[in-house]
Amino acid sequence: MRPFGYVSAPDVATAVRVVSTEPNAKFLGGGTNLVDLMREGVERPDTLVDVTGLPLTAIEELPGGGVRIGALVRNARLAADPLIRSRYPVLSRALLSGASAQLRNVATVGGNLVQRTRCPYFYDHASACNKREPGAGCDAIGGVNRNHAVLGASEHCIATHPSDMAVALAALDAVVELESVRGTRRVPLLDLHRLPGETPHVETVLTADELITAVELPHLPVAAASHYRKVRDRASYAFALVSVAAALHVREGVVTDVRLALGGVAAKPWRAHQAERVLLGAEATEEVFLRAADAELAAATGLPDNTFKIELARRTIVATLQELLTDGSAA
């Protein structure tokens, strides 16, 4: 690993000040992704500003029924939190489907949002990758790409975002709070990540010196009936081929509220607005669910290795909605 400086930040103001003044500095949370990438020589910071001592570890109920989650809450604790489990089960399940118990004990909410793709060519310094080295080309296109994106990809990058948690947050209309020397701003989670376009190395709207300090979930009654379904090659400890975060409310056979997001299919957690539009106000039947999935996936395109993901996403959307419908929680 390349040598680097290390600073432990005593407070948020110092953390953001150091990162804004030191050249090539990065925030260090749980380190479960950043440190790996440093070992591989993909991330090459000169200074790490350790933020894990900052007081951003609360999970608080907000007036009006929402929840505010400190950015340094560890994944395991968030998954086990009673408020989260009862009001946003999709989030708890998404967290528990990710990584391993050991990693979840360390990984933070803020870090989870900005973890980087698992595209093997991104990890491999001997391969061409526009994300790692802008303009270098993309070896995944034309290479091994079974795990890659079918929605929102570009000719420059077909990587996917690996987070499960972020998919649930995308379904839940979460808002991310950012802090920098210029002050505080709030960004809807759906606007946090960017599609690759011509600049796949720019993955979020965060500036280099902005620290994620909190994630807020709105009051969202539909989320009480929600589920996360992750489909992968082995039963645990694998990234999603496709995942679905869904919340559904049905009254008298008609969908009165719905949230749907997909993981493993794009460079960002993919909110399925097209599908939601089909579902809302329609009858809650398998046929409608299929129609909704097809509407969302109409724009999907596959490569030889990953075209199966389109059909898999379609089936997983339908199966997840059906499950919410038949287990009674959606009524």
Partner: peptide, 21 residues
């Protein structure tokens, strides 16, 4: 990788041995 002969998944994260589950 059929183009280069380079092993694409040289590690336990992407070479999937069975886990307990």
């Amino acid at each position: 990788d059929p183009r280069t002969g380079r092993i694409v998944n040289p590690g336990l994260a992407e070479y999937h041995v069975p886990v307990h589950a």
